[in-house]
Amino acid sequence: MAAVSNAAESRLVSAYGRLFSLLAESPEVDVFLDQVVHVAAEVVTPAVACGLTMRRDGGAFTVASSADLAARADEIQYGADEGPCLEALRHGKVVEVTDLRADERWPRYREHALEHGIAGSLSLPMTVDGETVGALNLYATHRGAFTDTARRHALAFTAQGAAALTVILRQADQALLHQQLTDAMTSRSVIDQALGVLMGQQRCTASEAFALLRQASQHRNRKLREVAAEIITQVSGESPQPAPGFISPRQHS
């Protein structure tokens, strides 16, 4: 028994290492989630399959699954609008099904899940910045599959997975912010160049030049930047040059 326990602990430690190796590789979010469910199914050994349910637009959908069984079990719950993974997602609590045949909590889900051979499950909420954003769903094909050790490992792995997901989502937000700032700087640069052209041509102030540019934008039903780019191209014979990319203080230091 000690050897089995030590082997399980070793798998859990290895799983942590794999999660944070993924972080170092800066993967796409969907790649990371796909790895999470496959590693979870390996770490929590009674589980036959693992799925990850996440919120979107007020609903729930499966973003990754280690096997078809998990995907089917999740879909049954979405169709029935009830089940352990939805319970975990909606209430932010761990939901265990020891013996689905004897469990009467979700009758519409239970009937179809039993037909697919599901006998038990363990659903664990994933929390990011204090909000439950998903639920990790582990499915088993025999009763009483999840021992105390299995539950402990599932809880530990889910906590580490949520921590890693938090980092990745923050990185994604930063990347989006960086792109938005770069786009804004590029637009501003093009508009400023066009204003300079108009000021020279019309011998007017910057405010007057901007009013002319805005009037042309409204009259043509075109974006301000597009009209500005046309003016620069007409005068120079070349498309406007992009502004240098935005560099955050962290990158600059």
Rank of each mutant, 00 (worst) to 15 (best):
G51R: 02
L52Q: 05
L52F: 05
L52I: 04
L52R: 04
R55D: 00
R55N: 02
R55V: 12
R56V: 13
D57M: 12
D57T: 12
D57E: 15
D57G: 13
G58A: 06
G59K: 11
A60N: 00
A60D: 03
F61I: 11
T62C: 15
T62D: 12
T62E: 15
T62Y: 05
V63F: 01
S66E: 04
A67M: 09
A67G: 09
A67E: 14
L69Y: 07
L69E: 10
A70R: 11
A71K: 12
A71Q: 12
A71D: 11
R72D: 09
I76S: 07
I76E: 09
I76G: 07
I76K: 08
Q77A: 06
Q77I: 00
G79T: 05
A80E: 04
A80D: 04
A80P: 00
D81H: 12
D81C: 08
D81R: 15
E82A: 02
E82M: 00
G83C: 06
G83F: 00
C85T: 15
L86M: 03
E87R: 02
E87H: 06
E87N: 04
L89C: 06
L89E: 03
R90P: 00
G92R: 06
K93F: 05
V95I: 13
E96Y: 03
T98W: 09
T98L: 11
R101H: 11
R101P: 06
A102P: 05
A102W: 04
E104T: 14
E104I: 10
P107F: 02
P107C: 09
R108E: 08
H112L: 15
L114M: 11
L114P: 02
L114A: 11
L114E: 03
E115A: 15
H116L: 15
G117K: 07
I118K: 06
I118H: 08
A119C: 10
G120F: 03
G120N: 02
G120L: 01
L122N: 04
L122G: 00
S123I: 06
L124W: 03
P125L: 09
P125K: 07
P125G: 10
T127N: 10
D129Y: 11
T132R: 01
G134V: 05
A135S: 08
A135L: 00
A135C: 00
N137K: 08
N137S: 14
Y139T: 14
T141I: 09
H142Q: 13
H142Y: 12
R143T: 15
R143C: 10
G144M: 07
F146R: 05
F146P: 07
F146Q: 07
T147I: 10
T149W: 06
A150Q: 03
R151L: 11
R151S: 08
L155W: 09
L155K: 12
A156S: 13
A156G: 13
A156Q: 10
A156R: 10
F157C: 00
F157G: 03
T158M: 03
T158I: 07
A159V: 11
